[in-house]
Design a binder for these strands. Structure first.
Lengths: 179, 179
DNA sequence: ATCAGCATGTAAGGCGTTACATGATTCA
DNA sequence: TGAATCATGTAACGCCTTACATGCTGAT
């Protein structure tokens, strides 16, 4: 498994739950997972190819319905690699928020620009929060199914975080308008 | 200014406040700014060189004390570029948390592994929160100085966020132990 | 005298984004 | 019939991390 290519474990994690095509994987990454990990076709397909060579996944070609589809299945070796990574006690959590950069350097422009930047951020957070709450409600109906309790935890994380962002927006706006 | 190289505006933002060497810039990025933007020497020095070519910054060599030092100074053109970026109404805020990935895919291992991963995250958050609170206290002494109110906003953001993380840790731990 | 920190850079290699290329299927 | 979505990939290019290379300064 490539040392710095974390998409590998994302794919293994998804395949542990069910067999998927590269296209399916992309859809998952555009959904709830997208809040904390992104992926692109140019990322996913090469990773699948190299992981197949390494024996972490196997491909199951299917022409059901005439359309070409390649389902990938996790191997025992792939499962071991996934579990080994899950048990590693180091992790890299990275945040790169251009919004905070703009706030931090807001002294170079009029106060109104910073206020506008906070507003834009706030709108964005509200949109995302609505989506996350939808995921939450849907998950609560199926919490007993395997793995769903884990998905639920990450959705709760997103909600807790975004609610904190909204509180901060209010405070920041107040400070910008008062001082 | 390179389209996708955001370190440029970070450097311009720092230089707007005061002249700095590449080494100084790295130190800033290892401080409070590091919570939302990272940088490395291999990143900073080439950016400074190319920005000098573009006329966004000028270099002021100094051999005061015998040690070679290159202070960079923002030009009018650099200031305009910084202000233009601050006023752009789009922004990319990216979060890549391996911790959440491990939580999400925790179904592949024993419950105890996920509990341990939450604990590790919690310890990390507490450490960072202590640092942020220190920054906050220091900033509160100098809030009247130019730009400091903006730095203060980003520190408040960090604190609000990390406190939310801690609340989530408690909830997540409870869910993992009860269900 | 030695070691940590100051200070400036270069080089290799990997990773990821974006755009491109192609074609099938489904639904209105 | 046309548009959106399904589906798989490749190629170029840029960016960043990591490691390397070098040497000075100040404190113990």
């Amino acid at each position: 498994m490539a040392k710095d290519r974390k998409i590998d474990v994302v794919i293994l994690g998804l395949l542990f739950h069910e067999d998927l095509t590269g296209y399916d994987i992309k859809k998952r990454l555009d959904g709830a997972i997208g809040f904390f990990w992104k992926g692109s076709f140019g990322n996913i397909y090469p990773a699948l190819a190299s992981m197949e060579k390494e024996g972490l996944v196997t491909r199951k070609d299917s022409k059901a319905g005439g359309r070409e589809k390649i389902f990938y299945h996790i191997t025992k070796q792939g499962t071991k690699a996934l579990q080994a990574w899950l048990q590693e006690e180091q992790f890299s959590n990275e945040l790169r928020y251009e919004t905070l950069l703009k706030l931090h350097f807001g002294g170079a422009v009029d106060r109104s620009v910073t206020i506008r930047n906070i507003e834009i951020f706030e709108e964005d957070v509200k949109r995302n929060l609505a989506v996350l709450n939808m995921y939450k409600e849907n998950l609560e109906k199926v919490l007993d199914e395997a793995d769903h309790i884990h998905y639920y935890l990450t959705v709760l994380f997103g909600i807790e975080t975004y609610e904190a962002y909204l509180r901060w927006c209010k405070k920041a706006m107040k400070i910008m308008k008062e001082n």
